[in-house]
């Protein structure tokens, strides 16, 4: 077996595939590394069968198919990966935004009961729906899909759009409530407003990316 050789035709081919891949960067890099290994194997296979290297490379590329078609085949998996990553990001970072608003709206949360704590958070229903959406997405796109109906890429992409929209609405509500209140500006008010504004910008980017991936899925006829 040969180590990865500098074959310009393979590099150009994979570069064309990369241009047509959309989704999480790390996932795309792994796909390209795996395709490169597969192409190297195919070239080895054809050279062992007696073809000169340039023809073996051309045959391997033909065998894998046109870059656009190969990239289209990965579109569904990349869309689902994007949906899962994004939803996980929102669930992981939600408390980092929420804690500042909680401390601002209820400065001594550990002195109150659970109900009083929940009552202090004006967006609890939105948080519940977001967590439910996230749980449903993980269940129907992960290991539980062996028993549950599997979510296709379009349905999976609806989850980050929903969660991002809920976060946007939640952030807007707390920002408006804060603007109308006499709550302190520094330091908690400033930190809470900043974290919400950052998340709102991320939310707009998330929604745009998810819609771009949906268009990509539609173009790939998946």
């Amino acid at each position: 077996m040969n180590a990865t050789r500098p074959m310009p035709a393979l590099t150009a081919y994979l570069s064309d595939v990369a241009t047509n891949l959309s989704g999480p960067r790390r996932r795309r890099e792994r796909i390209l590394a795996e395709l490169r290994d597969g192409l190297d194997h195919a070239v080895d296979h054809h050279t062992a069968a007696g073809l000169p290297e340039d023809r073996a490379v051309a045959t391997a590329i033909d065998e894998f198919g046109r870059p656009r078609i190969v990239a289209d085949a990965f579109a569904a998996e990349l869309a689902v990966a994007h949906a899962r990553h994004t939803v996980a990001w929102y669930i992981a970072t939600g408390p980092l935004v929420g804690i500042w608003w909680l401390l601002l709206l209820n400065p001594r949360p550990w002195h109150t009961g659970v109900l009083a704590l929940l009552a202090a958070i004006p967006v609890v229903p939105l948080i519940v729906v977001a967590i439910g959406t996230a749980a449903g997405t993980f269940a129907t796109t992960g290991r539980l899909m062996r028993w549950l109906p599997e979510a296709g890429p379009r349905r999976a992409l609806a989850a980050p759009i929903t969660v991002a929209a809920l976060a946007l609405v939640g952030d807007l509500i707390v920002l408006v409530l804060y603007g109308r209140s006499a709550l302190p500006v520094w330091p908690l008010g400033t930190i809470a407003v900043t974290t919400s504004l950052i998340r709102m910008v991320c939310g707009i980017t998330t929604v745009r990316r998810a819609f771009a991936l949906r268009r990509r899925i539609a173009a790939a006829h998946l």
Binding site: G38, A76, E77
Partner: peptide
Amino acid sequence: VPTGTVYPALHRLERAGL
């Protein structure tokens, strides 16, 4: 089987834990 079908199918099976 087209190459473009096999790799994504393997990724999906991995996601399903199989």
